[in-house]
Computed example of a mutant assay.
Amino acid sequence: MTLLRTRGPAEATQAIQRALRGETGGVVNGAVPREVTPEAATVVFEAPAKRNAETLKPREVRVDVENRGHFSTHMYSNAVGRRQYRLYVPAGNHSEPLPLIVMLHGCTQNADDFAAGTQMNSLAEQHRFLVAYPEQPQQANPSKCWNWFKPDDQRCGRGEPSLIAGITREIIGAHSVDPARVYVAGLSAGGAMAAIMIGAYPELYAAAGVHSGLPAGCAHDLPSALAAMKGGRPPRHARDAMDGTASLPKRPVIVFHGDADATVHMRNAMRLVQGFDARLHDGREPRRTVAGRRACTVSHLVSTNGMDAELWTIHGAPHAWAGGNARGSYTDPMGPDASAEMLRFFLEHPLRR
């Protein structure tokens, strides 16, 4: 606070960053600064229009780390087309291969919006992993949704899955990435595409996180997509395709869904974990409550072939990323921390050959 008053927000922020890195020293006006706690380090100062430090007001968010790591823009192309993506690489030397999480945004969002809302870059800086954010342009979909409901965008080596997989492989080839710890996650349309990716590329992704999404193969065009979003029964051929893959899940999955979601019905979360142990229907799963957060019920499931799944039912939650930051769209700060729970689940499940 002394630095903030005497030298401004830039110097104060640098002091917090040095403390987070474990660096010592830095006497300010003859006083040794106190230890910076994680709680204090979450305060980011925003300068007002006038350079008056006395009127500076803090707001609480996760540590703003983008000036520590490297958040860059890239372009990937293949025979299908091209997609831009943003890549966050944490600061420091990477002597050992790091995990990679591929994050697929929802409709109307972009990479920066999704990164701000999920705060996944902050977790990447704290826990040492890379984060990629492929972007869906408006030319591919008027609302910038991933086309999870189109047959050509639901298959390995075709359409948008080939672009997302190509981006993933490009990052693995260009950076020190542990190929056994590559994961995919998404929200809404991005969640539906994450479900497609884990089924189409089980050799590439070790696990998936689906937030407010839908199961792979539940629709084949826009009308069937709208019906699926409302929780309707999938068409016969879609049910046959889903039943054919659900009996033996290919990779672990963690699913988050609000039971007050008016955009994508909760039934889709249940369908996402078809093929895992059906204990989620017996009503005995514990209901978790944390002060200041929404209550949720967490179901831990295991398939007959040994694949794990978790289903987080968030009570009273809308169509939004649980525990997200209000700087991004479609976030629910009152929810459990979906980003942290996904990361925990991912790191517990490296790729099994």
Score class of each variant (00 low, 15 high):
Met242Leu: 12
Ala41Leu: 12
Gly117Arg: 01
Ile167Arg: 02
Tyr330Glu: 04
Gly335Thr: 03
Arg5Gly: 01
Glu23Met: 10
Arg18Tyr: 08
Phe129Tyr: 14
Met193His: 02
Ser339Leu: 03
Ala227Arg: 11
Asn52Gly: 04
Asp64Leu: 11
Gly191Val: 04
Leu123Tyr: 13
Ala216Thr: 02
Phe114Met: 06
Ala262Gln: 13
Gly316Cys: 07
Gly117Glu: 05
His127Trp: 08
Val177His: 07
Leu301Lys: 05
Tyr76Cys: 12
Ile171Arg: 10
Ala47Gln: 15
Ser188Val: 04
Phe45Trp: 15
Asp221Val: 02
Leu280Asp: 06
Ala208Phe: 05
Gly26Asp: 01
Tyr201Asp: 10
His211Gly: 01
Thr13Asn: 05
Ala15His: 11
Arg68Tyr: 02
Ala40Tyr: 05
Leu204Trp: 05
Ser299Val: 04
Pro151Leu: 09
Pro318Thr: 01
Asp64Phe: 10
Thr263Leu: 03
His220Met: 02
Gly244Ala: 15
Ala132Ile: 09
Ala115Tyr: 02
Pro151Val: 05
Glu348Tyr: 01
Glu46Leu: 11
Leu204Phe: 04
Tyr201Thr: 02
Leu20Val: 15
Ile314Leu: 10
Ala189Phe: 04
Ile198Gln: 15
Ser143Pro: 00
Glu203Gln: 12
Arg251Asn: 05
Asp240His: 09
Leu87Thr: 12
Glu285Asp: 15
His300Thr: 11
Pro142Leu: 12
Ala322Ile: 03
Met334Lys: 06
Val302Cys: 07
Pro99Met: 11
Ser224Lys: 00
Phe114Glu: 00
Glu285Asn: 13
Arg233Ala: 11
Ser188Thr: 05
Pro48Arg: 12
Thr168Phe: 13
His70Gln: 13
Gly173Gln: 15
His94Met: 08
Gly25Met: 05
Glu285Met: 11
Phe256Cys: 07
Leu100Ala: 06
Cys296Gln: 13
Ala10Pro: 00
Lys50His: 01
Ala15Val: 04
Ala340Asp: 00
Ala295Asp: 12
Arg233His: 10
Glu285His: 06
Asn110Lys: 08
Phe346Gln: 05
Ser212Leu: 02
Arg62Tyr: 13
Gly8Arg: 02
Arg158Thr: 01
Arg294Trp: 03
Gly335Trp: 02
Leu3Arg: 12
Val63Lys: 02
Cys107Gly: 13
Ala246Trp: 09
Ser95Gly: 11
Asp152Ile: 03
Ile196Cys: 09
Ala180Ser: 14
Thr24Pro: 00
Arg21Asn: 08
Gly323Arg: 01
Ala91Met: 02
Gly22Met: 09
Pro235Glu: 15
Gly173Ala: 15
Arg353Ile: 08
Phe345Cys: 00
Ala260Val: 06
Val273His: 04
Cys218His: 03
Ala180Gly: 14
His74Cys: 12
Glu60Asp: 07
Ala31His: 05
Leu187Thr: 03
Arg288Glu: 08
Asn29His: 11
Arg86Thr: 07
Met75Lys: 13
Thr263Lys: 00
Ser339Lys: 05
Glu125Asp: 14
Ala91Gln: 11
Ile198Leu: 14
Arg233Phe: 01
Met1Arg: 00
Pro223Arg: 00
Asp332Met: 03
Leu301Gly: 11
Glu39Thr: 14
Tyr330Thr: 01
Asn121Asp: 15
Leu214Tyr: 03
Ala216Asp: 06
Ala10Val: 13
Gly22Glu: 06
